[in-house]
């Protein structure tokens, strides 16, 4: 095994020899399951409402009867967005946690360079991001399937696509967290900053952008782009079975799915990868020049 393989194994052992990975995985899957269940119930309620005669015009618009609308897609996208906060927090503690506990000294003493150590860490956290992503998809899926009618669920191809973007989203969020943890180098600081930004600050920014009549910019911000990754896939899957939909309705649907920025899913993914890269580069620069005293 090469130098890099050794370091990756060391980093992997670091994560498996303490309880943090499952300590964060439990609330992750509880949240995912909860969102999945709520999604199915809300979707059912909405479909029942839409099927009543008053809103017939809307169903005419979409070209299919409401019981065939795959409303669960929106809930799944939202569930993924909210659940991936946890792997991001997990990632944020990768480097800040080591600095906090002063284990970073031994880590740097046993690695050929700081860059080697950080890259190995990033690789291991990409793997963990994927594990979290699969777990999130599994539990969101269980929640949705238990509470939804078959007509509202995606087909096999849809599930596969959602799983793909869920895992991708989770990996990217974890990477972003690792970068922020290296940049801020303080466990509480980086976790609070991330939660504030993703749950509050950027949502406020989105309102400001709408007010300034440039809502599309939101798709280029970190939270906007990561939500766009899953939201766009949800909207695309919904529209593919919903018939002809006017652009105004499509915009509303994107907003519901959390993909207000209206970029294609892969574009959104690339934009967020860019953000993760910028943050990691900043974290690397900080770590590289930091005096470990």
């Amino acid at each position: 095994m090469g130098l890099m393989g050794n370091l990756v194994q060391a980093e992997l052992r670091k994560t498996t020899t303490t309880g943090l990975w499952w300590g964060l995985l439990i609330p992750t899957v509880v949240l995912a399951l909860g969102w999945g269940l709520a999604t199915g119930l809300l979707g059912q309620f909405f479909v029942d409402f839409a099927s009543s005669s008053d809103v017939d015009e809307v169903s005419d618009f979409l070209g299919v009867t409401p019981d065939q609308w795959k409303v669960s897609l929106f809930g799944i996208a939202r569930a993924i967005n909210i659940s991936t906060i946890f792997p991001m927090v997990f990632g944020a503690m990768a480097i800040s946690g080591e600095i906090n506990r002063r284990t970073i000294t031994t880590t740097f003493l046993t690695a050929p360079s700081r860059m080697h150590a950080m890259l190995a860490k990033m690789l291991v956290y990409v793997l963990w991001g994927a594990v979290y992503g699969l777990a999130i998809m599994l539990f969101v899926g269980i929640g949705v399937v238990v509470t939804s009618d078959a007509g509202q669920l995606p087909d096999a191809g849809g599930w596969a696509m959602l799983t793909l973007v869920c895992v991708l989203s989770s990996i990217l969020m974890t990477m972003f967290g690792v970068g922020v943890g290296a940049l801020v180098t303080n466990v509480a600081g980086s976790v609070v900053l991330l939660l504030l930004y993703f749950l509050v600050i950027e949502n406020v920014l989105h309102f400001v952008l709408v007010y300034l009549e440039v809502p599309a910019v939101a798709g280029f911000l970190p939270n906007g782009s990561i939500n766009g990754l899953t939201g766009s896939v949800a909207v695309d899957l919904f529209l593919s079975t919903a018939g002809v939909v006017p652009p105004e309705i499509e915009d509303v649907l994107r907003a519901i799915a959390g993909a207000g920025g209206a970029l294609d899913w892969w574009w959104s993914g690339l934009v967020f990868l860019g953000w993760a890269g910028i943050v990691f580069a900043g974290g690397w620069a900080v770590t590289q020049s930091k005096d470990i005293t």
Binding site: L7, A10, R13, T106, T107, A111
Partner: peptide
């Protein structure tokens, strides 16, 4: 074992 792995 963590650092044994790192050192190889």
């Amino acid at each position: 074992r963590v650092y044994a792995a790192a050192i190889g």
